[in-house]
Design a binder for these strands. Structure first.
Lengths: 196, 196
DNA sequence: AGGATCTGACAACAGTTGTAGTCAACCGAG
DNA sequence: CTCGGTTGACTACAACTGTTGTCAGATCCT
């Protein structure tokens, strides 16, 4: 009887809770130790669960990594959508989007590192072609007003690279700059890209 | 007697030759399989040498990886220096530099991947802070004509990121564009960065 | 209380890693 | 021909990996 209550909660509840603990542990490890440190055993240690429960929620190590990445990606997407909605001018749209993204990764640098670095470093993600930045880049490209197909793609790829690099440098402390100035510069990059 | 000849060559000669074979194998693996595939054993297999000779030339796996990276970095630096020397105008300097870099990585994509990706993916490089792009970025920053210290740094970091991303996309085939157009666009990026 | 279910600690498997050591075979100088 | 430097194949070790299995004990329903 699967709906039977246990220690106050149902089985499905506890199972879901364990899944969340594993996801949280995966986010922590992938965002700090990086891909190599995110092993099944390490995740289980951090989540204070045994391997048995890992394979209860995920068939693979790969599935966990992908789930973590997509989880963070969804948060970023949602933050961007919320920020862009109801923005009157394109300039404000750019500013709001950049600000939302900066807030996300300053608030939790692990998410920034996962979003920006993990797809480059983890075979589980590269093999699946799980790379959200190109998706965001494509969205940006559609917003561009000038140029043909190829031109817009070139601009979008370059813009995403510029933003990523600035964010990464800011994250690891090698770019000492105030948060406001970071936002202002990124907004300028976005707006400048549209004007070629 | 270390200078004693053996099979026609001296010991030091053969030792240096083996070091080169190991470096070449490291370049091949790091530039294709990536960091994870570049193990001591894999390098030795590829170089057709045994582990003993690995530790004859390098104390660590880390030392080999760093040596490969710095080797490629030196080639890139030299190519850029050669390209920029004797360029009459800033515009031609930018074009020559970009063209030289594109030639380098189109000629041998492994070098491009090592230069652009390895420092992000290999702990042996990140741990040592071995990342040459910031160095290049600093050089670029010095060439910029406008802005204060921080501004130039922001612009330089962004520019390097944009170029890297475009190159990476071009390398892995996700950016279908002619080589000439790639060069032209990158030149435009460089020149555009100087004009804010 | 009995019996079904759930839990957690652990062992086992075969594989890879970095690093070090052993040992027979080879090769050229004296 | 013998001696010592040189070679390469091989083994050894401890630590890790992903994955699956076992088993004693806790927990709850009837």
């Amino acid at each position: 009887m699967p709906g039977r209550t246990w220690a106050g909660t149902t089985l499905d509840d506890r199972k879901a809770l364990r899944r969340e603990q594993l996801l949280a542990a995966g986010l922590e490890l992938l965002g700090t130790e990086g891909s190599a440190g995110t092993s099944v055993r390490a995740v289980c240690r951090r989540a204070k669960l045994t391997e048995r429960y890992f394979y209860e929620s995920f068939t693979d190590r790969e599935e966990l990594v992908a789930a973590v990445y997509e989880h963070v990606g969804e948060q970023a997407r949602q933050a961007l959508v919320d920020a862009v909605r109801d923005a009157p001018s394109p300039a404000l749209r750019a500013e709001n989007a950049v600000r939302a993204f900066v807030e996300l990764i300053v608030d939790d640098p692990r998410k920034g590192r996962i979003l920006l670095l993990a797809p480059l470093t983890d075979p589980a993600l590269t093999r699946r072609g799980l790379h959200l930045l190109p998706v965001f880049a494509a969205l940006v490209g559609e917003q561009l007003s000038h140029g043909d197909e190829t031109e817009r793609r070139l601009v979008a790829v370059g813009l995403v690279g510029a933003l990523s690099n600035v964010f990464i440098a800011y994250l690891d402390g090698s770019l000492k700059v105030s948060r406001e100035r970071l936002v202002a510069h990124c907004v300028k990059l976005v707006l400048g890209a549209d004007a070629h």
